[in-house]
């Protein structure tokens, strides 16, 4: 922001971060890329995506998220999970199992070394 005269009572401080990074954490970039690539395969129409995302944003707001833009990719991820579960044969159970597998792998991996998923946990 070149002229930082934002009214703090009107717009949140994050608005001052005008040229912040496109993605604040790598997982945001991955979630973004997964969505576009899946759309390109024809798994869902972009209008379907926008509808799902805006639904998740509305849901989060109803649950008390002030929705200042910093949680945007959390809504994005929730929408992506919902669409993948709806459009592929992946199940919630598979997602949760795989998540636990990554959690265990992360606990096991020595510091400074990559976290790898052992073959036997790939269900």
């Amino acid at each position: 922001m070149t002229n930082p005269q934002l009214a703090v009572d009107a717009l949140p401080p994050s608005l001052k971060d005008q040229d912040g990074p496109v993605f604040r954490e790598p997982w945001e970039a991955t979630a973004f890329a997964l969505t576009v690539k899946l759309h390109e395969t024809g798994l869902f129409a972009w209008s379907e995506w926008a509808e799902t995302l805006s639904g998740k944003i509305t849901e989060a707001q109803a649950n008390g998220d002030p929705d200042l833009g910093d949680t945007y990719y959390q809504h994005w991820l929730a929408a992506l999970e919902a669409l993948v579960l709806r459009k592929t044969d992946l199940t919630l159970d598979q997602l949760l199992k795989r998540k636990t597998a990554w959690e265990r792998a992360a606990e096991r991996a020595p510091h400074g070394e990559p976290i790898l998923l052992p073959e036997d946990e790939i269900a």
């Binding site: 997982w27 979630a31 997964l34 991820l77 992506l80 993948v84 997602l95 795989r98 976290i115 998923l117």
Partner: peptide, 25 residues
């Protein structure tokens, strides 16, 4: 301080399953 946050874990789970299924490269 878990090495992977809840959000990172969710993305990794999703990504790795989609890759396994050949849905993304």
């Amino acid at each position: 301080h878990p090495r992977l946050s809840e959000l990172q874990l969710r993305v990794k789970a999703l990504e790795s399953l989609l890759v396994d299924k050949g849905l993304v490269d």
